[in-house]
Design a protein around this nucleic acid. Structure first.
Length: 309
DNA sequence: AAGACGAAAGTGGTTGA
DNA sequence: TCAACAACTTTCGTCTT
């Protein structure tokens, strides 16, 4: 499978004389030799995609998973045949069949788990999560496998759903987008699988508290603790005034941080904040305007800063 | 020139008939 | 199941610093 070609002409020399080497998955300019793209092969995981309801598979930007699936060092032993001769021919057959079936099932589960666990390890290390979270993810995934929730679904997608679910359970603020990025699973699918596993395993999650985002965004923006605290205050009062329901927690956190940074003369641009909060500038704007409109103590403080400066 | 602002059109998810 | 709806995004032109 080859991705759509996105280049019409060479950005270096402007020439339209591009060569497309399908074998190597490269596009190069014949005039100046610049290689425009060398990752044109689509490493999407079609061999495990059984979902029929995903019409739009255009957005497959997942990282290729390179670990081997061939590793089948089975722990299962065939067992002794000592007693078998006592059985009738018919029962022997049945015995063999049963055991064969059982072996297949258990090895299927085992190999699925092995695959999933190494993927979980990878995700956890990329996201820098503590060990207990990894264990919880592994535990819940194992439960999902045992309840047959993975059958008919892609392993990676269910893993992604479980990861997100556990993050939500522990109030560890990671966005859907981040999970989607490290797992290479489409955002929508992560959300879908998150719902799927939490519904079937009775995982309860509360709506995300914007406070959880504030700290992380603040440190990512390397803001002063004072500004950080200010933003927390703003969010807190906003929640109390009930102007946050229905809004995206990321947006609230972003808006509060923008105001706080303004008040404490540590100004960050809307674009900077939008970037770390994973929302658009427009959302930062709307959110902070909404906050200022509804929390009048903010208006005074901003005026004070303006007058002082 | 960069940042902030806001309008307009589009997207995906929720809700209620 | 469908349509209306709110929140958010994208894009883009304009104003402000």
């Amino acid at each position: 499978m080859i991705k759509d070609l996105q280049y019409k002409k060479c950005p270096e020399c402007g020439d339209e004389n591009l060569s497309w080497n399908k074998e190597k998955g490269e596009v190069a300019c014949k005039s100046c030799g610049l290689v425009l793209d060398d990752k044109l092969f689509d490493f999407g995981q079609e061999w495990r995609e059984f979902d029929s309801d995903d019409a739009q598979n255009k957005r497959r930007t997942g990282a290729p998973l390179t670990y081997t699936q061939e590793d089948r060092g089975l722990g299962t032993t065939i067992g002794t045949k000592a007693d078998l001769y006592k059985l009738s021919k018919k029962n022997q057959d049945r015995f063999y069949r049963l055991r064969l079936w059982q072996r297949r099932v258990s090895t299927a589960i085992e190999s699925n788990l092995r695959l999933a666990l190494s993927e979980i390890k990878r995700i956890v290390s990329v996201l820098g999560l503590p060990t207990y979270v990894e264990e919880e993810i592994a535990r819940i995934y194992t439960e999902a496998v045992q309840r047959g929730l993975v059958r008919g679904h892609s392993t990676e997608a269910v893993v992604a759903g479980v990861v997100y679910a556990v993050l939500r359970m522990y109030d560890i603020p990671r966005t859907l987008n981040e999970v989607s990025e490290v797992t290479g699973i489409d955002k929508k699918k992560v959300a879908k699988n998150f719902k799927y596993v939490s519904r079937n395993l009775n995982i309860r999650t509360l709506p995300i508290d914007p406070m959880n985002y504030v700290s992380r965004f603040a440190s990512e923006l390397s803001l002063d603790p004072k500004t950080h605290t200010k933003a927390l205050n703003i969010v807190q009062t906003a929640v109390k005034e009930e102007i946050t329901s229905g809004r995206s927690p990321k947006g609230i956190a972003a808006g509060a941080l923008y105001i706080a940074s303004k008040i404490h003369n540590e100004k960050r641009t809307q674009a900077e904040i939008a970037k770390v909060a994973d929302v658009t500038e427009v959302t930062v704007r709307n959110s902070y305007k909404e906050l200022v409109e509804n929390l009048n103590f903010l208006t005074n403080e901003i005026e004070k800063v303006k007058a002082g400066a």
